[in-house]
Amino acid sequence: MIILLGPQRLAPVVGEVAASYGVAGHAAVITAGWQEREAEDEELFAALGMPGVNLQLYARWEEVARTDPALFAAHRERQDRLRALEELYDGRLRHVMAAARELMRAEGPLGLIESERESAIDAVRELDDHHLRRVAAIHAEFDARVKPTEHPALARHREQIRDVLARSEVVAIAGGHVGVLLNRLRLFGLGDAIGDRHVIAWSAGAMVCCGRIALFHDSPPQGAGNAEVFEHGLGLCPDYVALPHAKRRLRMSDPVRVALMARRLAPATPLTLELRDHVALDGGRVVGAAGACALGHDGSVTPIRPAAAAGGAA
């Protein structure tokens, strides 16, 4: 069972939602997205209502970085490359998104304009896919060259984490900095190690469980940017792209922006997750939901219902 939730800090429902699906047991908790505040997990455990252990992935990497300077330097060099690649992607994205947005708002003969829109959105999708391939290639090159799992400092922690997971029925992944969270999950091999355990994840935690991770904010103080496809997620629910805080971060009342987001991320379904929202998936099928909505290709925002087939909204 995979349960994705909206933000928990102001109105935690994680415990009652987990209980309602019978998800219980010893929990391996991941709060690496909180970075230096990783260990401040008292409220989290209280809300979760399960015994468990914080895997402390953020602190573990800090220790590895101190004890293995070569691995730290190689990791930093990879992050520099990823950052530089992201800037190049962002520069290209500006142009293809401007074209797509212009066509989405343009008027013209229906028989002509729709295929132009589709082509413009295809160009965005193609760029997104290209970026994800480039990112994956950088990771693959790093893994092949540096062989991080063979570094004793890292291997020791991975072993310890596997031990904790072996006695855990549940993995809980909190939100925070999605880039840091994904990075630490990858470094410590959580993608494979989670196995078929129950996963309950919220905000950035929900994002990393999906097939792809989209970064988005329509009204930051420096001016609206374009939603970016960041990286592949863990792929635990590949048919969705989680959008926490969507009401605050996205102009949901603008059907053109909603439609563009939905069509761009297809075939996955963009899934909004607000306070108290959740969606529960079992074998990729929606088995329960509350509040979570799917963005539609027509600009609609439709509540997810359990009856829906995987990847779709009722």
Partner: peptide, 18 residues
């Protein structure tokens, strides 16, 4: 300052989903 600094040094707001 908010407009200038956030434009020149955009923060992790883009990356943070608490």
């Amino acid at each position: 300052l908010q407009e200038g600094l956030s434009w020149l040094f955009p923060g992790p707001l883009w990356m943070v989903y608490e």
